[in-house]
Amino acid sequence: MAYDRYVAICQPLHYGTLLGSRACVHMAAAAWGSGFIIALLHTANTFSLPLCKGNAVDQFFCEIPQILKLSCSHTYLREVGLLVVSFSLGFGWFVFIVLSYVQIFRAVLRIPHEQGRHKSFSTCLPHLAVVSLFSSTAVFANLKPPSISSPSLDLVVTVLYSVVPPAVNPLIYSMRNQELKDALKKLIQSVVSQQQ
């Protein structure tokens, strides 16, 4: 999404050539492939861990940090190594997104018309907010010290990075559609008129 916004704002005349169907397929394949490989490696390592503290996880979400709490062997270092690899890959994607948005904001701030700047920011800021929410809470969930760990805090942080971004994304991007905005206004007006 960051690359799409970068090309649309910084190189609009080349949009069709830089973001054709082939480029979209390559980007989707890279995202899905890297996610699948990391998930497969984590799953294989997780199932190889001996669990000596039972097999009940403290929360609804069965996450790697929760499973590592149940392990009593030193083989968890493999999983910690995989977490480091995952964070390195995630950090690479995060740097790519940040650099894309730095270029976008530089280009947007050079737009002479306020309306053009507002339109550009309105398409970029929701994506940046969702990425920031996901990244910050995922890093916090996996790197927080055990001294501040509690089941309720773990659950809230997990919901913030695993449920909220996918739930908010369709709402954010559909709210740019004028027909949807009009339908939502009609719905709100009908609810308000029924309550009166």
Rank of each mutant, 00 (worst) to 15 (best):
S100P: 02
I67Y: 04
S193E: 15
S193L: 15
F134V: 00
S147Y: 07
A129H: 02
V157R: 00
L51R: 02
T43D: 08
Y15D: 10
Q59Y: 04
H26D: 12
E63I: 14
L83Y: 05
V156D: 11
D58H: 09
V95K: 00
A2N: 04
G35H: 05
A44H: 12
M175V: 10
P146Q: 02
N55A: 13
T46N: 01
H14I: 06
V95D: 02
G90C: 07
Y15T: 13
L18Q: 10
C10Y: 02
F91T: 05
D154G: 02
L180Q: 14
A30W: 08
S100Q: 04
I97C: 04
S147E: 11
P126W: 03
T123C: 14
S88P: 08
V7S: 03
T158L: 05
N45F: 15
S73R: 06
V25G: 13
I97M: 04
F47K: 11
I172G: 01
E114V: 10
L49F: 02
L51W: 01
S73N: 08
S73T: 09
R106L: 13
K144Q: 08
T43G: 06
M175T: 11
V25M: 12
E179V: 14
A141L: 05
F94K: 00
L128C: 03
G16Q: 11
V157S: 01
P145H: 14
L171F: 07
S174Y: 15
D4R: 14
A141P: 00
Y6M: 05
F61V: 04
V131R: 11
Y6N: 01
Q189H: 15
A107G: 10
W93F: 13
L49R: 00
C62D: 10
P165T: 06
V25D: 12
T137W: 03
Q178N: 14
A129M: 09
P50N: 13
Q59V: 09
V159C: 05
V164Q: 00
A107R: 08
R176P: 11
K144Y: 05
A31W: 12
L13C: 03
L99S: 03
V156K: 07
F87G: 09
F36C: 08
K69S: 09
S73Y: 06
G20K: 06
L187K: 14
S150R: 04
F87S: 12
S71Q: 09
L89I: 13
F47G: 10
Q178I: 13
P151Y: 01
G54R: 03
A167S: 12
K186N: 13
H74D: 13
L171Q: 15
M1D: 08
V168E: 01
N45D: 14
A8I: 06
L70A: 07
K144P: 05
P65D: 04
T123W: 11
F61C: 03
K69F: 06
P12M: 07
L40N: 07
I111N: 06
V57R: 01
L143Y: 10
E79M: 05
I148W: 04
S174M: 12
L70R: 03
Q11D: 10
S120N: 08
D58N: 11
Q196G: 15
Q195C: 15
R106Y: 07
F60A: 04
G92I: 10
S34N: 03
S174A: 14
S135K: 03
N45C: 12
D4E: 14
H118V: 09
H14W: 13
M27I: 14
V85H: 09
L99K: 05
S150G: 10
